[in-house]
Nucleic acid binder design. Structure first.
Lengths: 345, 345
DNA sequence: CCAAAAAATGTGCTCGAACACACAAAAAAA
DNA sequence: TTTTTTTGTGTGTTCGAGCACATTTTTTGG
């Protein structure tokens, strides 16, 4: 349990702490004889440099910038800001400077602009929500060539070199929804996958979720579900399919791939159909309300707050304490009903 | 964003750092004039002592001992040990010494003995699983009068002074199970609450869960469920009620309040009754197996691994970085089905 | 009024790692 | 052999907080 210091090693090897330091950091200027002596000791004991002392001398304020959509434009991002604030609070007395940068979730131009600005400010690390796939890859590459550490959250992007990611396995979350649907809805119901979004930003998101959902049912045997896909552009809602559904007296199960379940429920609420089950994503106030009223059966929790909080924590502890960062942290896919809801808030 | 040091304050107030130190730590021996000057500056700026520098001088190896049931006796505790190991790994290079102490979950004598041993070793903190209520209170009091910090996990005990706790709200977890049962089982089914345990250690546990479960249904209107309670002593299983259930051709929903769902399924599997739904606790291998086979509908995850990991993290960061410990950390009540299972492992 | 006691204040060292710099020893050039 | 250069080694300082101890200032009592 003894913790060795550089001084201890120096004494054991019969050299000075400067020499030990040079050996450890491979700074050269060490004779073969001295190198052998120190290497021998290092092999015998388990030397762990004291990360606290190391950082003390460093005495550098690490700048970590968080880039994400403006929660005023889409409330889904509000908990992410809370997660950031929690990290700020928790590391207030440490030498870190965390700043928030918002972009418009509907504008790739805004995304580019904000990333350009952040790049010019030369932070030590960026925690990024890579909403736009192509632009994100280019942004990440820019950061990297400037020697800036990049972590991502909420949606995964694929790059040659691994990139840190904190978030859900979206494909699997689709499967989770499917399993829940299968549990609460018999195959006499038709199942509708709903894509709700202002634009097609979330295209990859939604595709991954749909794929998981459909895969689950196609792997099923002994059950015959009909599964439809419905895309709704919120700004100009094409109600034809919805109207069709309303006209039917059939029972339905809806899987909403975005946080906009409440929109679907709104659209359907004129017609009081009893045999409708809705499964969606995210604990927005509007969704919570409907979950409590049993008009939504389950919500899948993407833990937005935890995503930014954890992402930041990993970065901070990496810089301050030389801790290793997991390069992929997949969060538990939370199934939320009206009763475990409060434990997630 | 500027981080002030004692030296900064000393210069601003026109005194020496020694005087500032005496003011901050209220060590006295300071004139009214100097005190006023320093207090004024302290009021103007936001001084946060650098926790890293503080701890450097301290240079103390903190001993934190974990007391929990032997996982060899009850496999439920194995993930707790993993959580401990994760914390050990993560803080390897810090000045902490974490040790495990096991007691027999069936023996209060063993519990007492282990706690006595730990008390004599005088650690700085103890993370305790307070399985036996009365004995736990006495153990906690002993630790406290010896100036040892105590945190608890997995089950809550009530004391005059608040005690740190990391774990589930068990009452609420009962309600979650009830909501799930209500979602998947119509009121033509009878519902059976099953208490499985070797001894009655878990009495409080199970009572809290049962209360939550029953409360949910009694608050329900427009549905008429019949709810029975079945206690099974595993060492000498009284099968009378089980036999009764088998003889019936009715459909049932079972809520198992312990991790022993697999025992129930075992007992019932002779009679292939289709209309049986089981909801239980904990991701034991046996339960996981049945969850995948759809013979258990949902498992409630108590996050044993996270409980010890978080409990330790709080203690370590409290000692090393003067971070505040939340005195009650209620973890999310995880609803697990066959698809989100892997995200919890 | 002055010495002694008491109170107030400042200085200096420690913790461990990191690195600059000074110095010493060996090797190369004169 | 002497003077440079090169290479190797050790010493000393820094970071910020905390506390022991030395020093200065003020107060008290004879």
């Amino acid at each position: 349990m003894k913790k060795y210091t550089i001084k201890d090693i120096a004494e054991l090897a019969g050299v000075s702490k400067g020499t030990v330091d040079r050996v450890i950091h491979k700074r050269g200027k060490v004779s073969q004889k001295a190198l052998d002596k120190v290497t021998k000791i290092l092999g015998e004991i388990d030397y762990q440099p004291n990360p606290i002392a190391r950082n003390l001398k460093n005495n550098k304020v690490y700048q970590i910038f968080v880039v994400l959509p403006d929660p005023k434009e889409d409330n889904f991002w509000a908990p992410c800001v809370e997660g950031v604030n929690q990290a700020v609070e928790e590391f207030r007395s440490f030498l870190v400077d965390i700043r928030l940068f918002f972009y418009k979730p509907t504008s790739t131009a805004s995304f580019k602009e904000v990333n350009k600005k952040v790049l010019e400010l030369e932070p030590d690390a960026v925690l990024l929500s890579p909403l736009f796939h192509k632009e994100s890859i280019s942004a990440v590459n820019n950061y990297r060539s400037a020697g800036i550490v990049v972590s991502t959250f909420n949606s995964q992007i694929v790059l040659e070199e691994a990139i840190n990611y904190v978030g859900l396995d979206l494909y699997q979350s689709g499967r989770v929804a499917a399993k829940l649907m299968h549990t609460i809805v018999p195959d006499t119901h038709d199942i509708v996958i709903c894509h709700f979004d202002e634009t097609l930003n979330n295209a990859i998101h939604m595709q991954q979720k749909e794929k998981g959902f459909r895969d689950y049912f196609s792997e099923l045997d002994g059950a015959d579900y009909t599964i439809l896909t419905l895309s709704v552009d919120q700004t100009n809602p094409d109600l034809s399919l919805v109207n069709f559904l309303k006209s039917q007296d059939k029972a339905f199960g809806f899987f909403v791939t975005t946080s906009k379940s409440y929109n679907l429920v709104e659209m359907l609420q004129g017609q009081r159909q009893k045999n409708i089950k809705v499964i969606g994503y995210d604990l927005l106030d509007e969704n919570i309300d409907l979950l409590k009223k049993d008009m939504i059966s389950f919500l899948i929790h993407q833990s937005p707050r935890t995503q930014t909080y954890l992402g930041l924590t990993y970065l901070i502890e990496h810089f301050l304490f030389n801790k290793e960062m997991p390069n992929k942290k997949l969060l538990p896919i939370g199934i939320v009903n009206s009763e475990n809801l409060i434990t997630y808030l």
